[in-house]
Computed example of a mutant assay.
Amino acid sequence: MKIIAPTAPFSGLSSGAPSLADRAYGQIKQMIFDFVLLPGDRFSESDLVDRLQVSRTPLRQALQRLQREGFLLVFPKSGWQVAPLDFEVFDQLYDLRVLLETHAIAKLCEAEERPVLKGLADLWLVAEAERHPVQAMVDRMDEDFHSALVRATGNEEMARVHDDITERIRIIRRLDFTKPARVQVTYDEHARIIRAISRRRTDEAQRLLRAHIEQSKLEVRHITLDMLYRARREA
């Protein structure tokens, strides 16, 4: 079986110049991610019109997009609400993510040709002094690493489901890289996973991946709860 190298890293961004609705979408989503808008907070469109300096039509389009993605709830005649964080749902999404990625690893270990591994090794099997210092960049690189494993199988439906999971857990997952120590751990753990796949050690690679994702899940839950506590105290 031949494993397909992804043609481009996953970015989650549309091409072309952003519209007013796109910009409003990005601004509101960042406010949710930064806990400026807290889980459970209610607000009206009027609250954001002046704040974002955008008219109601593109604002409403942005809000509806965030609603479809599960970040917002809408209540007719009473406004919008930031969706409460549901860690039970996050746990289910992480479990599904593990199933997809361990399956992808099994396929990679069996494959005759595996061009994706060279690209991953070039990024992650580097000396400590060559590691990327920008935590926000490592956040995106981490998503691309896990996405590449799944996309390399050539199964487009599996990649689509994995992309959806990535989008839905991003609100908490990205917090794993707010601590410099976690950035270094991510490099080390990704390197071990790549080496195990390169040596076709399926069980070892899958075990390393499960441990890597489980530890990240525990870290982001702790960080999220701490950030929410501090944000509510300062509100």
Rank of each mutant, 00 (worst) to 15 (best):
E45I: 07
D188C: 06
L63W: 02
D91G: 07
H146M: 09
S11T: 15
L228Y: 03
P6Y: 09
A83Q: 15
W80Y: 14
A148W: 05
I165A: 02
L73M: 15
F10N: 06
R168F: 02
S14F: 07
M141V: 01
D139P: 03
G119Y: 01
A231N: 05
D188G: 02
G79W: 07
R230C: 00
R140A: 08
H222D: 09
A83H: 11
A83Y: 04
I3C: 15
D203P: 00
A129L: 03
F145G: 01
M227Y: 01
L208H: 13
A191H: 04
S147K: 06
V54I: 12
L149T: 07
Y187T: 05
Q206W: 02
H132F: 09
V183F: 10
A17S: 11
A104H: 06
G154L: 05
V89K: 11
P9R: 09
I105K: 11
D47N: 09
G70R: 04
Q67E: 15
A196D: 04
F43I: 06
A17M: 11
I194Y: 04
Y94D: 06
M158Q: 11
S55T: 13
K2C: 01
D142Q: 09
F75T: 14
Q135D: 11
I105Q: 01
V134R: 15
T202F: 05
E189K: 07
K118Y: 00
A129I: 04
F90P: 08
R97I: 02
M227H: 07
A21W: 05
E234G: 00
A181V: 13
R199A: 15
A211P: 00
L175W: 04
D188K: 05
R207D: 14
L117S: 00
D50Y: 08
I213W: 00
Q184T: 12
W124S: 08
R65G: 07
L93S: 01
E214L: 14
D41L: 12
E45V: 10
R173S: 12
L37A: 04
E128I: 07
R199M: 12
G154M: 04
